[in-house]
């Protein structure tokens, strides 16, 4: 009897073991991700300032938020930044991938050089570009010393142009990675179709336009999803490169949220802005993940 009870327990344990092993991770994700999301969303409807407080104020934080010029600037900047960052990274990544796919000598070395910025922290990238673009010691000063005395390049100090320096540094950091994604896509294309089209007299331009680029659809989609979610999360780069300035010229939603929550003690408004960031990312990521996971079944 004891023996069977023992094996019984063992088999039952064995059948529960997989779920038991998964449960700590699952519990962490449920509490620290989804529980916290609910908590933050809840805070966005309360009068929290320095500390969380639970006085319900309805949509007041949201209506305040949309009246703030600071938030409006952050959103406009995000629009400019995301549009340019995603477009330039995609065009540049695809072009470099196509060029690199022409049986290039030293391809491995070139790939390594294009990709290494991805290994760096945005704080390092920001520091390097900050001083290189600084008119006092960087490019402007160097070219003036070399004799081009009328040369001016002070975008990083110019309210109207500073956001483009953020684009430049961000493109520098991630375009190589996008290149690698497209290169992997190009290497997966069946050469037989290309050879057949070549026999029919198709030009290289037409081969790319009609056959190759349409086949890169999945790579375009992943690049778009990854780049847009990186754009919305951009925070460290701005902190290191411009600190959100000059003035508020390079504030983004992520820096807005941080300063309203932790330095201006407007936690309710900070939580509202974080909620809007989350909803934007969810609108992009959820359909993508849904399609990806369904395909794999």
């Amino acid at each position: 009897m004891a023996h069977t009870a023992d094996t019984d327990f063992k088999t039952r344990l064995q059948s529960w073991l997989p779920k038991l092993v998964l449960s700590p991770s699952l519990a962490m994700v449920l509490v620290f991700v989804y529980g916290f999301i609910l908590f933050s969303v809840y805070l966005s409807f309360t009068d929290s300032r320095l500390l969380p407080s639970y006085g319900w104020v309805g949509l007041e934080n949201y209506s305040k938020l949309w009246r703030l010029s600071h938030w409006e600037i952050s959103l406009t900047n995000m629009g400019i930044f995301a549009a340019l960052y995603i477009t330039i990274c995609t065009v540049l990544g695809l072009s470099l991938a196509i060029f690199l796919d022409q049986k290039i000598r030293a391809e491995g070395l070139i790939r390594t050089i294009y990709l290494y910025p991805m290994a760096l922290s945005f704080i390092v990238t920001g520091t390097a570009w900050k001083w290189f673009l600084d008119p006092g010691i960087g490019l402007e000063n160097v070219l003036q010393t070399w004799g081009w005395t009328s040369f001016e390049f002070d975008w990083i100090k110019d309210r109207d142009f500073a956001i483009y320096t953020v684009v430049l540094a961000a493109v520098w950091q991630t375009s190589g990675f996008v290149m690698a994604m497209f290169l992997a896509g190009l290497r997966g294309i069946d050469n037989e179709i290309l050879k057949a089209a070549q026999m029919d007299g198709a030009s290289n331009w037409n081969l790319y336009r009609r056959i190759i680029i349409p086949q890169l659809r999945p790579a375009f989609l992943s690049a778009f999803v990854i780049l847009s979610h990186l754009a919305i999360k951009t925070f460290d780069l701005v902190i290191a490169l411009t600190g959100g300035g000059p003035g508020r010229a390079t504030e983004l939603p992520a820096t807005f949220m941080y300063s309203y929550t932790f330095t201006r003690n407007q936690m309710g408004i900070g939580a509202a802005s974080a909620t809007i960031m989350l909803m934007t990312i969810a609108a992009i990521m959820i359909p993508y993940l849904y399609a990806e996971l369904r395909e794999k079944k």
Binding site: L26, F36, P52, A274, L278
Partner: peptide, 26 residues
């Protein structure tokens, strides 16, 4: 299991601003 995995995967992409306040409390 696929739904659970989807929940775990989505967690990678959230803007972490949404968890900063409760995480500090926790």
């Amino acid at each position: 299991d696929t739904i659970l995995f989807g929940l775990m995967l989505f967690a990678c992409f959230i803007p972490f601003q949404i968890v900063l306040i409760p995480m500090a409390r926790m």
